[in-house]
Computed example of a mutant assay.
Amino acid sequence: MEDWIFGIPTPVAMALIALIGYFLGKRNQRRVSVDQAFARRELKRAKSIAKQLEEISREVRRNLASHQSSIAHFKDRIALMSSDEKQGDESWQTLCEEAERMLSPTIRLSAQIANAYDEVRQQANLLMTFTESRTDPLTGLSNRRALDDSLESLFAMKDRYELTFSLCILDVDHFKKINDEFGHLEGDRVLQEVASLIDNCVRETDVVTRYGGEEFVVLMPSTDLEGANMFAERVRFAADEQLKVTVSGGVAQACASDEPKTLLARADAALYRAKGNGRNCIYSHTGECVLPYPLPNQEELDQQLETEAGLLEEVRSLERSLENRPQRVAEKSAEIEVETV
């Protein structure tokens, strides 16, 4: 007589249990794989930050040692002149000139210490992105809070030391369609793969954040607009080739009049243009206008400008039509009243 478990034949029940165990094991294996990749990535970043802090400390220590030697030499000269009463005005003049020469490196050293403090603060902010409150749980990247802190630090460095940096917003194209057709689990998998791809394309000093939904923001210190455009294009090409999904990008370089909100707004405007021009492309905001990357040839550029001028004229014509509409309605109403009378 065949045994039954919960109303199901024992062989069938055992097969179901084994199948469930297999899928659970695969799911846990994927989660472990993601966690291990995240841990390796964060360890690499931590080592890079520790190395930079060590270099800052070594440079300050070397300059302090050199300066201390100069002070000791100066002290010996003063002692020698004090013991020799025959030293004249000429020797004292030489000593004063030497004191002035020492003052210049003292000022430079003071500025360097202040610079080192700002750099240490910036690296400390990067270290803070490792904490759970600054990490996106799905992708393991930094979150919006970490982005705000990093932007504040970079703008402080830009204002004090004229640091150049750029920002890039990357957006997964047709992501809602992926969720609708394949489900949210598949959408989450796509986001994790895109996040991993972006993180593998950046330098150790760059900050990668999940901005919200399917959007990612990359902060690139010491990077001009051209360099940021090249990075965004590299990510776009890699996503299309390796993941079979497309991304659009908007790029902007921080300028003198920028603050965090305006820089993000300019990059977002470039992204909006990329979305409106067919997706799977990169646009950048120069501070004056939005341009595609790479730039088209002169004929294509003239055609694009002509098209945009035509659209602008259509908008203005529509605006004039709307402005004159109340007057035409009033005239038509008057004609109807006359005909009625």
Results as ranks from 00 to 15, higher is better:
residue 116 A to Y: 08
residue 213 G to T: 05
residue 331 E to N: 05
residue 169 I to P: 00
residue 148 D to H: 06
residue 102 M to G: 11
residue 127 L to E: 01
residue 156 A to E: 06
residue 146 A to K: 01
residue 227 G to W: 08
residue 164 T to K: 06
residue 336 I to H: 14
residue 128 M to W: 06
residue 107 I to R: 15
residue 325 R to E: 10
residue 185 L to E: 10
residue 193 E to I: 05
residue 271 L to K: 09
residue 17 I to S: 01
residue 15 A to H: 03
residue 99 A to L: 14
residue 160 R to M: 00
residue 281 C to N: 09
residue 96 C to W: 08
residue 324 N to Q: 12
residue 41 R to F: 15
residue 306 E to V: 09
residue 104 S to L: 15
residue 20 I to A: 14
residue 294 P to C: 15
residue 284 S to T: 04
residue 264 L to I: 14
residue 109 L to V: 11
residue 34 V to R: 11
residue 62 R to N: 02
residue 181 E to M: 11
residue 156 A to H: 13
residue 313 E to P: 03
residue 298 Q to V: 12
residue 38 F to T: 04
residue 59 E to L: 12
residue 132 E to M: 05
residue 307 T to K: 15
residue 8 I to S: 02
residue 36 Q to H: 13
residue 309 A to I: 00
residue 194 V to D: 06
residue 24 L to Y: 11
residue 40 R to I: 08
residue 290 V to W: 03
residue 206 D to R: 03
residue 139 T to V: 01
residue 181 E to D: 15
residue 97 E to F: 12
residue 315 V to M: 09
residue 129 T to W: 04
residue 80 L to I: 10
residue 174 H to L: 07
residue 252 A to L: 07
residue 261 K to F: 00
residue 212 G to F: 12
residue 101 R to H: 07
residue 88 G to N: 13
residue 262 T to L: 11
residue 56 I to Q: 06
residue 52 Q to S: 09
residue 275 K to M: 07
residue 107 I to A: 04
residue 44 K to I: 05
residue 310 G to P: 08
residue 131 T to I: 02
residue 172 V to C: 15
residue 94 T to R: 13
residue 227 G to T: 12
residue 228 A to V: 00
residue 123 Q to C: 08
residue 117 Y to M: 08
residue 25 G to P: 12
residue 270 A to P: 03
residue 309 A to T: 00
residue 103 L to F: 10
residue 23 F to D: 03
residue 128 M to A: 08
residue 302 D to M: 10
residue 59 E to K: 14
residue 10 T to G: 01
residue 199 D to F: 02
residue 25 G to H: 13
residue 42 E to T: 05
residue 333 S to D: 11
residue 143 N to P: 03
residue 106 T to C: 01
residue 307 T to M: 13
residue 110 S to Y: 03
residue 148 D to Q: 14
residue 218 V to D: 06
residue 311 L to Y: 11
residue 122 Q to K: 07
residue 17 I to Q: 04
residue 171 D to K: 08
residue 341 V to S: 14
residue 249 G to C: 10
residue 267 A to R: 12
residue 264 L to Y: 09
residue 338 V to Q: 15
residue 76 D to E: 11
residue 333 S to C: 11
residue 113 I to Q: 07
